[in-house]
Design a protein around this nucleic acid. Structure first.
Length: 642
DNA sequence: ACTCTGAGTCCAGACGAG
DNA sequence: TGACTCAGAGT
DNA sequence: CTCGTCC
């Protein structure tokens, strides 16, 4: 189900975080796919082929990816989190209770898919939990370049680049969502965004009835946390769900899956094996299989030759500017809807087209569009080809903590060129900003929440590794925009962080339009500490060899992967691939270079970051002893209404 | 006037022959 | 299953 | 390009 109405909300309120591409634009990229969604797609598309269609569909589509020199990584769902049980049960019921309880062993269908993918020679990974979570983690940490999924959950999990409609169809239009841009457009941190997603409605807990996307966004922008939102809505019209486990949902979204860094290898497809499996065992016509493989080989050769020629001639495959203006059915509708918004400029100004005040580039000139596609490495004549140097550099530690790009070293706190809506300062004020609530009301609300929460207080089992409660989201360094990249209190223990300890009001950052990127979430921060190296960094050629072995020591070993040795399928360094659309005049993105930089884009922000308190801290603000850090609303003395 | 909800509807893949 | 539309109730 | 077929 994903996040209810999130796609609509993004389309209406953060359209700059969406770009429209073609499958060719992803040549050379490593893309993680949530296999269960792919399989489902085929199953529903050709229901009368029930069992076979996922297999053949997967076969055909995977070859199409490979034809484009796209390197797919198939992620399989692990054990679904218990919070999702309710949703799964309901789904099974609606589907006619056909799902015999998911056993711990893999279904035959899944095993067949894995076998098929192995024969094709692409890597599979089993997620410890939700596949979406792992996909998001992979892209966030730079293991893959993007996640392809139809589910918006990926964004809530922190996946930085999400592709939808990455179909094999010729004319398909791939929709690319950028989480960093989204957060900026909505003026939210990732944690606040997660709270928004919970309010919108997710798989892991109920939502507040009567709060739709518009109100949810407004409330989160104003109050920053669910806890504060709850205190500021009319509980008669918007009752809080009983047993509302929003904190567990929050934790699921924010926790980093505990997995080893996968070793991803791609190898030559095994034609005979495929024929044996698909044709002899599954009775697919051999002609179909061999014919497709034949077509795959020739198509792959053609494309590579074409790219070589293009490269020789110096022809640059432009990432079409007009792409961003290409009118599609959806966008037509969307722009029609947008007509109501009189302040179109402010929308635009909030993002790509507006140079930040500090930049000398003529404000609002269309020349800036050039930056849209490749704001980096402009001196390079072949900038449209994969720039793995910049790719790698983005994850180099020195980039994290060392130099910063001039344009980002000093975020502009006052306003962006185009007039982004800055969250109201009123939310800083201790007084209620909304419908005047009596103290009793608010107290009752708190008490209610408190009782609910204490009955569902986080158990020890889910506590481990949780960093959510540990980082003081809406506090810390946003108040020091000019601080440059000095590491501030990075290693501080919880108690040494004055912001955590003091439980101060959550506001100051709301005045900083660049706040979103200056605050790395806990998971992001932990990532940037752990994921400091990537083979592409130093040796772009490695990419071509298909070797992606990762250093060990990347979390606990829980999942398995099915690596194989490299084949040689991807021997060339993917010329001809176009660059990912960087966040043009996106001042916060320090590594505005290639798109993988997104995965690592935030680390420099840690310069404004907060201390990372140790794990084990209670994150329930309503519990007595809990520090009143990130969600300073609860039963603590920091609540001005108590 | 705006927002949310729920009911209803349509659609969902890839290939190749003609 | 989800995306979309529409009518109706609510704020 | 449309339409029927895939098993």
């Amino acid at each position: 189900m994903g996040i209810t109405k999130l796609a609509d909300l993004i389309r209406s309120d953060a359209q700059d975080s969406i770009s429209y591409k073609e499958i060719e634009d992803y040549t050379g990229k490593v893309i993680a796919l949530d296999t269960s969604i792919v399989m489902n797609q085929f199953r529903t598309a050709v229901p009368n082929l029930k069992y076979l269609s996922p297999l053949t569909g997967l076969f055909f589509r995977t070859l199409t990816f490979l034809e484009h020199d796209i390197k797919p990584v198939f992620v399989f769902d692990g054990k679904p989190p218990k919070q999702k049980k309710a949703v799964l049960e309901k789904r099974a019921q609606n589907a006619g209770w056909t799902s015999p309880q998911r056993s711990s062993t893999m279904s035959q269908r899944t095993q067949d898919c894995i076998r098929l993918l192995e024969l094709i020679g692409v890597p599979c990974i089993k997620a410890p939990g939700d596949g979406e979570a792992l996909c998001a983690h992979l892209v966030k940490s730079g293991v893959v370049d993007a996640v392809a999924s139809e589910d918006m959950d990926t964004l809530a999990f922190g996946g930085t680049i999400l592709l939808r409609q990455l179909n094999a169809k010729r004319d398909s239009e791939v929709t690319e969502y950028s989480l960093p841009k989204l957060l900026e457009a909505l003026q939210l941190t990732h944690k606040e965004f997660v709270d928004l997603c919970i309010l919108l409605g997710c798989d892991y807990c109920d939502k507040i009835c009567g709060l739709g996307p518009r109100r949810a966004l407004k409330l989160i922008q104003e109050h920053r946390t669910i806890e504060e939102v709850v205190l500021n809505v009319n509980r008669k019209t918007h009752p809080i769900p009983l047993e509302w486990r929003y904190q567990e949902a929050r934790r699921l979204f924010l926790d980093t899956p505990q997995v080893d860094r996968p070793v991803l290898t791609w190898q030559e497809l095994d034609e005979e094996g495929l024929v044996r499996f698909l044709c002899h065992e599954k009775h697919v016509k051999e002609q179909r299989v061999r014919g497709r493989i034949e077509k795959f080989r020739s198509s792959l050769q053609d494309r590579r030759r074409q790219r070589e020629e293009d490269k020789k001639v110096g022809r640059v495959k432009q990432t079409r500017l007009e792409q961003f203006f290409r009118v599609t059915r959806k966008r037509q509708a969307q722009s029609a809807a947008q007509e109501k918004k009189f302040d179109l400029l402010s929308d635009l100004g909030g993002d790509i087209f507006a140079a930040p005040p500090s930049q000398t580039a003529g404000s609002s000139n269309f020349a800036n569009f050039a930056h849209f596609n490749r704001p980096t490495a402009q001196s390079n004549s072949n900038t449209d080809f994969a720039n793995f140097d910049s790719f790698g550099n983005s994850s180099v530690p020195s980039t994290h903590f060392g130099t910063t790009h001039p344009s980002q070293s000093i975020p502009q706190p006052l306003h962006t060129g185009g007039g982004v809506t800055v969250p109201s300062l009123s939310s800083m004020a201790p007084a209620p900003t909304q419908s005047s609530k009596t103290g009793e009301d608010r107290y009752a609300a708190l008490a209610e929440l408190d009782s609910v929460l204490s009955s569902t207080a986080p158990t020890g089992s889910t506590q481990q590794g949780n960093v959510f409660g540990a980082v003081s989201g809406p506090t810390a360094a946003q108040t020091q925009p000019g601080l440059s990249s000095i590491q501030q209190g990075f290693a501080a223990a919880p108690s040494t962080n004055p912001f955590v300890a003091a439980g101060m009001a959550p506001e100051p950052m709301s005045t900083n339009p660049f706040q979103t990127n200056s605050r790395a979430s806990a998971t992001e921060m932990s990532d940037c500490l752990r994921v400091l190296w990537f083979p592409f960094v130093d040796n772009p050629a490695l990419f071509g060899t298909g070797s992606m072995s990762m250093p060990a020591g990347f979390g606990n070993p829980t999942s398995y992967c099915m690596p194989t040795s490299f084949s040689g399928t991807f021997q060339q360094p993917f010329p001809g691939q176009s660059p990912f659309p960087p966040p043009a005049a996106y001042p916060q993105q320090p590594n505005g270079t290639g798109f993988p930089a997104y995965g690592q884009a935030k680390p420099p922000m840690t310069s404004y970051g907060q201390a990372i308190p140790g794990p084990g801290m209670s994150n329930n603000p309503f519990m007595g002893g809990a520090p009143s850090g990130p969600y300073p609303t609860g039963g603590s003395s920091t609540n001005p209404f108590l």
